[in-house]
C-alpha cells in the first residue's frame, strides 16, 4: 500500500491560497493510557475551493471525527489544519460564520418549530438582517423546492422533506464550504437523487466547496469530482472520480431471483458471485459488457422471478481499491 505522503494528490500542486481546506498530520486520540484509541492518525488532506469531495471509508475509519476537527467541534491531539485560512479549533466562531454543516443523524432545526422559525433564529445568530434573511429563505425555498415545507413543524415532516429544510438551514448564511456527514442516510431513492442534484447545482452556481462523507456509492458517483478514502484514520486513496469510475465504479451487481435451475452465464467481464436455488448474483464489469446484454442473456436462459441491478456496497469498492493499490 502506498502511504499518503508519497503519493501525489490532486490538490498538492495548487497554490495554497486557493485551498479551502488544508490539514497535515492530524491525530485524534480518545481516552488515555492502555484504553486510548486513535480515531484519526496522521491524516493529511487538501481541498481546493469549489471542489466536490467525497470522503469515504469503512465504519470507524475516522470520517466523522475528521469532519468535527475541521469544523472546530473537536480539538486534535496533534497536527495542523487551516480551513478558509482559520485554525478551526482556535477560530471556531469566525469559521462557523462561513461554513455550513449538516449531520445526517442530527438536526439543526428545532423539532417543535417550523423551519421558518428556526431560520429566523439562525439568521440572527449569523447576523443576517431581516431583508437578507427573507430574500435568502425565498431563494432557498425555490432552489430546494421546499417553500411549502417551511411553515410546518419539523416533527411533521418526512425525513426527505426534513433534510431539504436542514440543507436550507445550513445554506442560509451562504457558506463557502459545506460539510455534510452522511447526508443521504435513511432517505428514499427519489429524495437521495434530489439531494445529490441540489448539491451539484449549488456547487456549480455558487462555487460552494462540498465535502461529504457517505456510505452510498451513488453519492460518490453523482456528487463528487474527487474521492478521498480513509481507513484507520489515514488517507489510503485520493483520486478523481472519473478515474475511479473507469475502474471500480464500473462494476454493478445483478441479482436474479430464480424460479428453477439456471445454467452458468458465460460472458466477458461477468462473474458469478453467489448462487443458490433461488438467487443468482452476477458481478458485471460494464466497461466490457453492458448491463443490457447481460439482462438479455439472463432473461433468455433462466426462469427469472425477480431481477435487480445495484451498486456494489462501499465496503467492496474500498476493498478493491486496497487490492488495486497493492498490486
Amino acid at each position: 500500500m502506498v502511504l499518503p505522503a508519497e503519493r501525489p494528490r490532486p490538490a498538492d500542486d495548487v497554490d495554497p491560497a486557493t485551498l479551502a481546506i488544508r490539514a497535515t498530520g492530524l491525530v485524534k486520540r480518545f481516552g488515555s493510557g492502555p484504553h486510548a484509541v486513535d480515531a484519526v492518525r496522521d491524516l493529511s488532506v487538501s481541498v481546493r475551493q469549489g471542489e466536490r469531495v467525497a470522503y469515504i471509508g469503512p465504519n470507524g475509519a475516522g470520517k466523522s471525527t475528521s469532519i468535527k476537527i475541521l469544523t472546530g467541534i473537536l480539538r486534535p491531539t496533534q497536527g495542523t489544519a487551516t480551513v478558509l485560512g482559520f485554525v478551526p479549533w482556535q477560530d471556531r466562531r469566525r469559521l462557523a460564520a462561513r461554513t455550513g454543516t449538516l449531520f445526517g443523524q442530527r438536526s439543526q432545526l428545532w423539532f417543535e418549530l417550523t423551519p421558518r422559525q428556526s431560520f429566523r433564529m439562525l439568521a440572527a445568530i449569523y447576523g443576517l438582517d431581516r431583508a437578507r434573511e427573507q430574500r435568502r429563505v425565498a431563494e432557498l425555498g425555490e432552489l430546494l423546492d421546499a417553500a411549502d415545507l417551511f411553515d410546518a413543524p419539523v416533527r411533521t415532516l418526512s425525513l426527505g422533506q426534513r433534510m431539504r429544510c436542514e440543507l436550507a438551514a445550513c445554506l442560509l448564511h451562504e457558506p463557502e464550504i459545506l460539510f455534510l456527514d452522511e447526508p443521504t442516510i435513511g432517505l428514499d431513492l427519489l429524495a437521495k437523487r434530489r439531494l445529490r442534484e441540489l448539491l451539484v447545482e449549488l456547487n456549480e452556481a455558487a462555487g460552494t466547496t462540498v465535502f461529504l462523507t457517505s456510505h452510498d456509492v451513488a453519492d460518490i458517483e453523482h456528487v463528487a469530482e474527487r474521492v478521498v478514502v480513509i481507513d484507520h484514520g489515514r488517507v489510503v486513496y485520493d483520486d478523481d472520480v472519473p478515474t475511479l469510475r473507469r475502474s471500480l465504479l464500473a462494476t454493478k451487481l445483478v441479482d436474479v431471483g430464480l424460479g428453477g435451475p439456471a445454467p452458468a452465464i458465460v460472458l466477458d467481464g461477468v462473474r458469478e458471485v453467489a448462487r443458490d436455488d433461488a438467487l443468482l448474483r452476477l458481478s458485471v464489469d460494464t466497461t466490457r459488457t453492458s448491463i443490457r446484454s447481460v439482462l438479455d442473456v439472463v432473461l433468455d436462459r433462466c426462469d427469472v422471478v425477480d431481477i435487480s441491478v445495484v451498486d456494489p456496497p462501499l465496503e467492496q469498492v474500498i476493498a478493491e481499491i486496497f487490492a488495486a493499490e497493492q498490486a
Binding site: 480518545f30 481516552g31 480515531a39 470507524g60 466523522s64 471525527t65 473537536l74 480539538r75
Partner: peptide, 13 residues
C-alpha cells in the same frame, strides 16, 4: 470543551 469527545468516545466513523 477542549476535552469534548462529541459523544463518540471512539469507533464511530
Amino acid at each position: 470543551l477542549r476535552r469534548y469527545t462529541s459523544g463518540s468516545a471512539w469507533g464511530r466513523g
